[in-house]
Amino acid sequence: MEFPFGSTVAVAHRGAHGEGRPENSLSAVERTAEIGARAVEFDVVALRDGRLVVSHDEPTGERAESLPDMEQFLRVVAGSDMILNLDWKRRGGEDRACEMLRRYGLLERTLVSSTDRRVITRFKQEAPGVATGISLAQRGTSAAEVAREVSRVVRESRADAAMLEYRGASEETVRVLRGAGVGVFLWTAPDQKTYSELASLEPDGIATDAIEQQLDRQRSL
């Protein structure tokens, strides 16, 4: 995966969720493929019993048993041409994830993001070709300060992209990262209006909770 993309990609945050389609559900990811979105994101947790499940946090008890395996989601993505953003929520299982990504032919179009640099390092060890992104919620007294700090963290983590909480992003941050050859992704636009405002920064991707509205707008232009 090479950056910059050339145009900003709308990323379906936890799938195209909505009425009857909860966040991080298989139906939400299936809907993302149905509406022709270019990219989808969902969260993965490695359970202590070895399972890789789709969840935003580490579940316990009966809830853990009922969560769907990541592999079901990979099958859906493999049957589409979507870019995949796996947001890794807990260390562990990176080797098994890479094996699955290889099996489904998804290594070249997957971006693994995490707040944990050790996760990024492990994915690079297991699959050097997979793209990685360090997730940050940087704030500072000035755009220049944020840009310097983000650049430092990306450089030290050896990530391919920076995944920035959108309220900490600026034109200067994007410009500095672009100059370093780093991909830039923003999270998470809660609505279409916010997405449009963020698009002016020209990042590689914007995670959005309003993917269908955004796609409808793009098609109407």
Rank of each mutant, 00 (worst) to 15 (best):
1 M>Y: 11
3 F>N: 08
5 F>T: 13
6 G>Q: 11
8 T>F: 13
9 V>H: 10
11 V>R: 09
13 H>Q: 03
14 R>P: 00
15 G>R: 10
16 A>F: 02
17 H>T: 03
17 H>P: 04
19 E>A: 10
22 P>Y: 03
22 P>T: 07
23 E>M: 14
23 E>G: 02
25 S>V: 03
26 L>Y: 04
26 L>R: 12
27 S>Q: 09
30 E>M: 15
32 T>Q: 00
34 E>H: 13
35 I>S: 00
35 I>T: 00
40 V>C: 07
42 F>T: 03
45 V>K: 09
48 R>M: 07
48 R>N: 09
50 G>I: 05
52 L>G: 06
52 L>V: 10
59 P>G: 04
59 P>M: 03
60 T>H: 04
65 E>R: 14
67 L>I: 14
67 L>E: 03
69 D>H: 14
74 L>F: 13
76 V>L: 10
77 V>E: 00
79 G>Q: 01
82 M>N: 04
83 I>V: 14
84 L>T: 12
84 L>G: 04
86 L>S: 01
88 W>Y: 10
88 W>F: 14
94 E>V: 09
94 E>L: 01
95 D>T: 03
96 R>Q: 10
96 R>S: 13
97 A>Q: 06
98 C>W: 07
99 E>T: 06
99 E>C: 05
102 R>S: 05
102 R>K: 15
104 Y>H: 15
105 G>F: 10
107 L>I: 15
110 T>K: 03
117 R>G: 13
119 V>D: 06
122 R>K: 15
123 F>D: 02
126 E>Y: 09
128 P>N: 04
129 G>Y: 02
131 A>V: 13
136 L>T: 03
137 A>K: 14
138 Q>H: 03
141 T>M: 09
142 S>N: 11
146 V>H: 05
146 V>D: 01
147 A>K: 09
148 R>N: 09
150 V>L: 13
150 V>M: 11
152 R>P: 00
155 R>V: 00
157 S>P: 10
157 S>E: 02
158 R>S: 14
158 R>L: 09
158 R>P: 00
161 A>T: 12
162 A>V: 07
162 A>I: 06
163 M>H: 13
164 L>N: 01
165 E>C: 08
166 Y>A: 01
167 R>Y: 13
172 E>L: 15
175 R>Q: 15
176 V>F: 06
177 L>K: 02
178 R>W: 08
180 A>V: 01
180 A>C: 04
181 G>C: 11
182 V>Y: 02
183 G>C: 10
190 P>D: 07
191 D>Q: 01
191 D>E: 07
192 Q>F: 11
195 Y>C: 00
196 S>G: 04
196 S>T: 05
197 E>K: 15
200 S>A: 15
201 L>P: 04
202 E>S: 11
206 I>P: 10
208 T>W: 04
209 D>Q: 01
212 E>C: 06
212 E>W: 01
213 Q>K: 13
214 Q>W: 08
218 Q>A: 14
218 Q>T: 08
219 R>Y: 05
219 R>N: 08
220 S>W: 02
221 L>K: 10
